[in-house]
């Protein structure tokens, strides 16, 4: 029966994808993209990939929609009709699609327990995690410890994106209007915003520190943190949000998270281990792993949250009118 739900979800995804391509209004396309991520997150849930689903929900439906909207607000929401029929891209896409389908022909069947993926590295992770890392969520143990260096790399990618946006767009300080007239009208939004802002932050903390046990971790928590502050900025205006978290502080936090992560690696080297070998951080290896994972997840959370918020600030600070 789950196969049926999978199929329906995939069909819906496909239809959504096609209509995103057809849309000329970029705002409408953005809304559909948000629906697209919701659908694919449900698909991940059905496929039992809970961590991925959580990430997709937080990033795809949340922050990327918001950033897309901020971009549209700065530019335009109409796609220009193409000058000529884009034949070359079409051919490239068709060939790519055919190659992908060709590639699937010899793939092990979906859910086949004899597939190579389930026989080589993965069983060792499943088997060794309780003894070596000592946390219930194997996904976290792979991401944060076995392949922790990849996670550092991904964090560096996000850091690069933040630095890039800052370099290209630059940050403009705005005049000190506390609250623009548009916001005054939204009384209900402000009340709800005030109510939800701490709840979202609380939930982000839960996701941050619960990552060892259930789905979650630094990336998702960081994004949820950023979303919380964005809600604050939406309900009370950018000026007030910047009074809460100034741009300078964000810049420091972006760097701090990265340095914390690298610092854990360096520290484990100084203590005589290899880079990112958490075992040496405490007296016994398992608690060393615990400590290491908590610290690096914290680093990830801080950097991701501040990069996302920084990008939002940078985009919105370029908005011409006072309506923020």
């Amino acid at each position: 029966m789950e196969i049926l739900i999978d199929t329906i979800l995939l069909v819906l995804l496909m239809i959504t994808g096609f209509s995103i391509v057809r849309m000329r209004s970029l705002l409408a396309a953005t809304m559909l993209t948000s629906i697209y991520s919701l659908l694919s997150a449900s698909l991940f849930v059905v496929l039992d990939a809970v961590d991925v689903a959580l990430t997709e929900a937080a990033i795809g439906a949340g922050i990327s929609t918001i950033l897309l909207l901020a971009t549209i607000a700065l530019t335009t929401d109409r796609e220009k009709p193409p000058q000529r029929t884009p034949m070359l891209p079409l051919i490239v896409v068709i060939i790519t699609g055919m190659a992908l389908i060709y590639g699937t022909l010899d793939m092990p069947h979906f859910g086949n327990p004899q597939a190579p993926v389930h026989l080589h590295v993965a069983p060792a992770y499943l088997h060794d995690t309780p003894g070596e890392i000592g946390i219930p969520n194997v996904v976290t143990s792979v991401l944060a410890s076995y392949r922790g260096y990849d996670t550092l790399g991904e964090l560096a990618v996000i850091f690069t994106a933040g630095a890039g946006v800052l370099t290209l767009l630059g940050y403009r300080t705005r005049g000190g209007n506390s609250m623009d007239p548009g916001i005054r009208k939204l009384l209900i939004l402000r009340v709800i915003g005030k109510l939800f802002f701490p709840l979202i932050l609380l939930f982000a903390l839960y996701v941050q520190f619960h990552g060892d046990y259930g789905p979650g971790g630094g990336f998702q928590a960081g994004v949820i943190f950023a979303t919380g502050f964005i809600l604050y900025a939406l309900a009370f205006g950018l000026g007030n949000a910047q009074r809460l978290i100034p741009h300078q502080l964000l810049r420091i936090m972006v760097a701090f998270g990265m340095l914390l992560y690298i610092g854990v690696g360096i520290e484990s080297m100084l203590l005589g281990g290899k880079f990112l070998e958490y075992n040496v951080l405490a007296d016994d290896p398992v608690s060393g792993q615990h400590l290491g994972i908590i610290l690096i997840e914290l680093g990830v959370g801080i950097t991701v949250a501040s990069v996302m918020l920084m990008i939002y600030y940078v985009f919105r600070s370029r908005q011409p009118e006072g309506d923020l």
């Binding site: 009208k185 939204l186 209900i188 939004l189 709800i192 109510l195 939800f196 709840l199």
Partner: peptide, 16 residues
């Protein structure tokens, strides 16, 4: 609890 707050707020903001 979240839904009964967010739903109407969103719809209200949308209508406005």
């Amino acid at each position: 609890y979240f839904m009964i707050f967010t739903g109407p707020t969103a719809v209200h903001a949308l209508a406005q």
